[in-house]
Design a protein around this nucleic acid. Sequence first.
DNA 1: TCGACGCTTCGAGCGCGGTCGAAACGTCAT
DNA 2: ATGACGTTTCGACCGCGCTCGAAGCGTCGA
Lengths: 224, 224
Amino acid sequence: MREGPDIARIASLVGDPARANMLSALMGGTALTASELALEAGVSLPTASSHLSKLMEGGLLTLASQGRHRYYGLAGPQVAGMIEAITGVAEAVGPKRVRPGPRDAAMRVARVCYDHLAGEQAVAMLDRLVEKDILLRDEREIRLGPSAASHFSAIGIDVGPRPRRPVCRACLDWSVRRSHLAGTLGAAILDKILLEKWARREKDSRAIIFSPPGKQAFERLFLA
Amino acid sequence: MREGPDIARIASLVGDPARANMLSALMGGTALTASELALEAGVSLPTASSHLSKLMEGGLLTLASQGRHRYYGLAGPQVAGMIEAITGVAEAVGPKRVRPGPRDAAMRVARVCYDHLAGEQAVAMLDRLVEKDILLRDEREIRLGPSAASHFSAIGIDVGPRPRRPVCRACLDWSVRRSHLAGTLGAAILDKILLEKWARREKDSRAIIFSPPGKQAFERLFLA
DNA sequence: TCGACGCTTCGAGCGCGGTCGAAACGTCAT
DNA sequence: ATGACGTTTCGACCGCGCTCGAAGCGTCGA
């Protein structure tokens, strides 16, 4: 008989299909309302509400009330990381699709991870930023390099006085199996990508589709 | 309604207390028989057997038959990583123990992770090996440095022609949140620690307890 | 060949938890 | 005030899956 942290409790929260769908939906990073999540999970509103209170009680979600709307979001990056880890195993042991769908391929190239960009593009971007010494990476953390402030402010991203959240964080990419950039900077870059309409979010998916000119713009700024 | 990898299926496998206990036990790295796992999980043999076939079917375990014994082990490092991720969340959201038990403290210092050493000692060891250029670490991987072969063979560890498994791998430590050394080299070092009786395994736990002289010997070799 | 042992399969019991309709609650608009 | 809307609570239903005892199946040792 073992003791220690109650991993069964946490895992069983993720282990219900409806809740798993909700959590997957929230991996997109945007907080959603109970009705949206009910739709996403394919269950009725009362059922969804019940699931949501369980996830709240389990500490996996945060809740932001705005008037008569209540927005649910993932409790934090650690929870997101856990979902990614589970996804990785599910992907690995799951029935190999004979032909990986186009959406699957798109997911590998670029997708939203909580609030920042993930996938091959994101991993490549971080590599390049480190190569150019704009960011400094060691085992422990990622830091801003000396030229970071000027580089990013030229692009229109402010990396100034830091809020509570760290500016840079490493986040392990489940498809590439290497780190990409998270933190406020990672979030800001994703914001910029969407704001400039370099890419759009695939409907009902975490995938990010770059338009041809958007891809050029992105690569010129971050992969050149 | 979402599709994609069936994360609920995987999570629900971990979500049963009996199975979670079994998986935790297997995180110790040594393969165990059905009866040992039944004891570990606190269920009867038939129940354990049923759980084990589910875990097998789910791809989370491997099975090695030796005569009338059947040894179950974790399917691989990816599964181990997932368990660690879930453990991390459970630890974070779980009821904060007012006083972390002594075993808990011991776990943070040193413990077994699959087949190698984890915890503060392990993270410190990897840092030191990298500092001394015996190992070379970048984001992508850990490699042997030029002096690695002579350094380790002097200790009695052969890092010669490589088997299928990589010699070095990075593995994220859930308590320290930084990498420690996995791979055949990591496994060999743990073997040596136990063989030389520098430390013993805490009964029914992943914790590793160094004896005072053992700790000295270990630190002289790996932390000096 | 026979019994001992480790493990799995079978069958039955049963409780936990997911499910939804109806009703209650709180907020916003008119 | 009144109605519309988003959400939660209540109550009842139902089935999945966890559980164990007994029996069946291989493997090993004498």
